[in-house]
């Protein structure tokens, strides 16, 4: 069997599992799967900013929060779901664009600090500006959306809704990274000076990478709010940003499917480990550390290396065979 056939079979199996497996799960399992889909979208956004464009952001969790709050506030005011969703994406895109400006001035770890400050500020605004966000008490009383007469109220319905959103987001990402923009982002990461000399408008693309990545975070947050049906500041601390960063790195930064794997480890693994009771987070942290030590470029990075190594081996074997053949002549 050729490699592409294996890959295709594998892909079909995964997609089939994502569609049919949740039918066999209880409501809790379905909820966790929905959460995985939502976090994957947020991690995909961060993967664009970090993995493709090479900009370290510690604010992705804050954008998820911005999206969630926009939807929760507007839905409570009676706007339905779709308009708030759109507004959430627009707002996070705009704020992401603005946050990108420091990225033009400071680089590498300093950029991480600016985004960290932003993240802290956003949390405090959620908590303190009670007139808008209801502060620490949180916003409640909005429903899950419906479309074309189909309600997504039940857990399994909402799961398919988030899965649809994930497919949409993935399709967008797949298009984006293959487009000239995507190639410009990578050029930016690999060598900004060279990219500039090749005529890539690095300013615009840096801002764009930030803005699109942030808007994906906002999109994810807009789905998070109706999943939980409650929004309060506590989930959107720096911890969420760091967690998303971990998902991207562990899955394989700069790989298209990295966030899918990373979110599976960040969201599903702790749940699987719950049988260990009080020790589950210890085991989880240990697992992540060992994983990173063994695969510092992420799971997909290692797989790629393995494939590359195999190809080299195969090639040198072929060369050896060829030269052996030559000897005989």
């Amino acid at each position: 069997m050729s490699r592409s056939v294996i890959l295709k079979t594998f892909g079909v199996l995964i997609v089939g599992a994502l569609i049919f497996l949740p039918l066999t799960l209880n409501r809790y399992g379905i909820y966790i799967m929905s959460l995985w889909a939502i976090m994957t979208i947020a991690a995909m956004g961060l993967n664009l900013t970090l993995g493709y464009a090479g900009q370290v952001s510690l604010a992705q969790g804050a954008f998820v929060g911005l999206g969630a709050y926009t939807v929760a506030i507007m839905m409570s005011a009676g706007f339905g779901f779709w308009l708030p969703l759109l507004i959430a994406i627009v707002i996070t895109f705009a704020v992401g664009w603005l946050l990108g400006y420091p990225a033009l001035r400071v680089q590498h770890h300093y950029l991480a600090f600016v985004t960290l400050a932003f993240s802290t500020l956003v949390f405090l605004v959620f908590r303190n500006e009670e007139w808008l966000t209801k502060g620490i008490y949180g916003i409640m009383g909005f429903k899950r959306p419906s479309a074309f007469g189909v309600s997504f109220q039940k857990p399994i319905e909402f799961y398919y809704f988030t899965l649809g959103a994930l497919v949409l987001a993935s399709a967008f990402m797949a298009w984006l990274v293959r487009s000239p923009w995507g190639r410009a982002f990578v050029a930016l990461r690999e060598n900004p000076v060279r990219a500039l000399s090749l005529g890539v408008d690095t300013r615009r693309y840096t801002l764009m990478a930030f803005a699109i990545g942030s808007a994906m975070g906002g999109f994810s947050g807009a789905l998070y709010a109706p999943l939980v049906e409650f929004v309060d500041p506590t989930p959107f601390t720096l911890a969420l940003s760091l967690n998303l960063l971990m998902m991207v790195i562990v899955g394989g930064s700069g790989f298209f499917f990295g966030p899918f794997l990373g979110a599976a480890i960040g969201v599903l693994l702790p749940e699987w480990l719950r049988f260990a009771h009080g020790w589950y987070l210890i085991i989880y942290a240990l697992f992540v550390m060992i994983l990173l030590i063994k695969t510092p470029t992420g799971i997909l990075g290692i797989i790629e290396n393995m494939i590359a190594a195999r190809k080299t081996r195969a090639a040198s074997a072929a060369r050896a065979a060829a030269s052996a053949g030559l000897d005989k002549v």
Binding site: Y28, Y224, Y280
Partner: peptide, 14 residues
């Protein structure tokens, strides 16, 4: 364990 996160708390009560 809810990890002091309402989203997780909801999942676990479920």
């Amino acid at each position: 364990d809810t990890q002091t996160n309402p989203g997780v708390a909801r999942a676990l009560v479920q």
